Computed example of a mutant assay.
Amino acid sequence: MSETRLTEAQYDAITEAAAQWCMRLHEPDCTDREREAFTVWLNADPLHAFEYQAMQDIWEVSEHLPKPEPVTPQVIARTQRSRQPAWRKLAIAAAITLLAVPVAAYSGWELGWVPNAYERVQAHSHLQTVTLPDGSEVELNLGTELTYANYKDQRRVTLSKGEAFFKVSHDVTHPFVVQAAEGRVRVTGTQFNVWMYQDQVKVTLLEGSVLVTSNKKLSGDGLRLEPGMQARYKAGDYAPQISQTYANSPDLAWRNGKLVLDNLTLAEALPLINRYLSTPLELADSATGALRVGGVFNTTEINSLVTSLPKVLPVYLTLSQDGKPVLNALPRG
């Protein structure tokens, strides 16, 4: 069977469609019907998915470009009628230009706007270990996604979801920054773990030192962790909470494919469990959340943990109105 070859115009049309979908899906007024139409378009051809992922990568890079200076009132009046904010369109255009044209890309690198290396890494059903372009090693837990970008003034990792253990290549003049939720972790060379679920983040330090902030918009470098310390934060926290860890802490058991629940309340355990579930568990009330659970479980078999909870705890499962499983404490007799 002969291979169908696209004309340049056909290929350009797919690229333009991918760019338009990327911009539209990032707008807050994007409708469910539009998202359904996008899914149909995305699944129509493997090339659609390839081009859309490329646009997603450009979008992430463009978020780090500086916001342009305010334009004249006349231009503002025109751009306000556009659904896409003017600065975002300019940023994407700048990113495409700077990434596509060698001379412009060099200028973008010198200004610290554009990376000279960019990589997306994902781990789905298996643990994965990768070596980043700077020589740093990263172990990824199940269901983890991150991107790496090397800028002139820093190495930047964005943890989109999941958990990762970092062995950072030492470079005092080129800091390594991990962005997770609304905070960041800044290092020059060390070993540490970052766990994230929704807007909750936990940073565990094994070696060296790191600076942790719960809100990257705040001034200052954040709080310093030394080996054996842990920082926790969630969206809206002014500063992370600092605590000590111990030698055999269960926080790194995932590197051996294990989830350790060390006599935790269900309220504490659920974020750890839900990290591995496509449909998260919910708690019926605070009384259910106060029940305690313990044990060691395989991270690839967390679904079986959910079904076994009623066998080891005084709870039963129901479904919420939107179809999510809910844990309910049995009434006390």
Rank of each mutant, 00 (worst) to 15 (best):
K324C: 08
I58L: 14
H126Q: 14
L99H: 10
F38M: 05
L225M: 09
R275E: 04
L211V: 00
H48V: 03
N150Y: 04
A17C: 09
T213S: 15
D171E: 14
S320L: 09
H64N: 13
A231E: 04
S214A: 15
V178T: 08
T188H: 09
I96L: 13
Q230R: 14
A100Q: 13
D134V: 07
S219I: 00
V185R: 00
V103P: 00
T173M: 08
E16V: 02
L111Q: 13
A93S: 13
D262K: 11
R35V: 03
R88E: 08
P70Q: 06
R184N: 12
E60N: 11
C22A: 12
P102H: 11
I302W: 04
A149H: 01
L272D: 03
T79L: 11
Y238M: 08
E63R: 15
P85W: 13
E3Q: 14
A247Y: 07
P68W: 01
I96A: 00
P66C: 06
L291C: 08
Y151L: 12
V315T: 11
Q128F: 06
P250I: 07
D134P: 05
L259P: 00
Y233K: 02
P115F: 09
R120V: 13
Q191N: 09
A49N: 03
E63S: 09
L206K: 07
Q241T: 14
A54V: 03
K216H: 10
Y11L: 15
Q154A: 14
Q53Y: 12
G228E: 06
T79P: 00
Y316G: 03
P28E: 10
